[in-house]
Computed example of a mutant assay.
Amino acid sequence: MPTLFEETALPKGKPVKSQHQSSVKKPSTMTPLTCFAVNPSGVRFETQEEDEEVVLFLRQHLIVNVPWVLFSILFVLIPPVFFPLVLRLVHFPFVIPAGYIVIGTLFWYLATVGFILMNFLRWFFNIYIVTNERVVDIDFVQLLYKQFSEARLSKLQDISYSTGGILATLFNYGTVNIETAGESPNLEFESVPSPERVVETISKLNQNIQQSPL
């Protein structure tokens, strides 16, 4: 595996702190909500080869979940707050049975739970992986279907990133664009944290591949 984050060794008998020690990147500890991990421990994916090692593990930044979380809170508050208000302000020419209100409320909350679950699973299982041999994009489409795209490091032609908006600037996230040669698909890592570090890491890996002997 290319030693992108390896610490420079010090001569024996000289316990002087190296000027490069502050930039050393230790293996990241994974949590269920991890969005950016360097050399993550315990991470494997379906098509990973025996000698292939994960260098970067990425998800979309947590902040991208804020809109649907706010909508979910609103949906939860609608039955106890909005429904009684409508019943008080609107005079229906008939009486709505209490059983209908209960059933309607249950269906509403069931739909809300489905909305929350689908959005969370889409964020949780949409994963971007960079290994010492390739870049991988795993897209969660629905419960029974996911799309797997990959490109070998040797096939990469151009790697860039873009950011836009106040939130992206404040929370330092953006989209990494990866252009490939031949029939390999172009890849896009959407709204990932620290996009400049992602581009730098992939570029170094690509450079190591290009310089390695055949």
Rank of each mutant, 00 (worst) to 15 (best):
H20T: 15
H20F: 15
Q21T: 12
S22I: 10
S22L: 11
S23H: 11
V24T: 11
V24C: 03
V24K: 08
K26T: 14
S28H: 13
S28M: 04
S28F: 03
T29M: 10
T31K: 15
T34M: 08
C35M: 09
V38E: 13
N39T: 12
P40L: 10
S41I: 13
S41N: 13
S41G: 08
G42F: 09
E46W: 04
T47F: 09
T47R: 11
Q48E: 10
Q48A: 06
Q48M: 13
E49A: 12
D51C: 02
V55T: 15
V55M: 05
V55W: 02
L58N: 03
L58V: 07
L58E: 00
R59S: 01
Q60P: 02
N65I: 07
V76A: 14
I78S: 05
P79D: 06
F83W: 09
F83K: 00
P84A: 03
L85S: 07
R88G: 07
L89I: 13
L89E: 12
V90H: 04
V90C: 09
P93I: 03
I96W: 01
G99A: 08
T105W: 06
L106E: 12
W108Y: 01
W108C: 04
Y109A: 02
A111G: 12
A111R: 07
T112K: 07
G114V: 01
G114N: 10
G114Q: 03
F115Q: 06
I116E: 09
L117Q: 06
M118Y: 10
L121H: 10
R122C: 06
W123L: 07
N126L: 05
I127W: 00
I129G: 00
V130Q: 03
V130W: 01
T131S: 13
N132P: 02
R134Y: 05
V135E: 00
V135N: 03
V135Y: 03
D139Q: 14
D139M: 08
V141Y: 02
Q142N: 15
L144W: 12
Y145M: 10
K146E: 07
K146D: 08
Q147K: 15
F148D: 07
S149G: 00
S149Y: 00
S149M: 10
A151L: 02
R152P: 00
R152L: 11
R152Q: 12
L153Y: 07
L153V: 08
K155R: 13
L156M: 15
Q157W: 01
Q157Y: 04
Y161V: 05
T163P: 04
G164T: 01
G164C: 07
G165P: 09
G165Q: 09
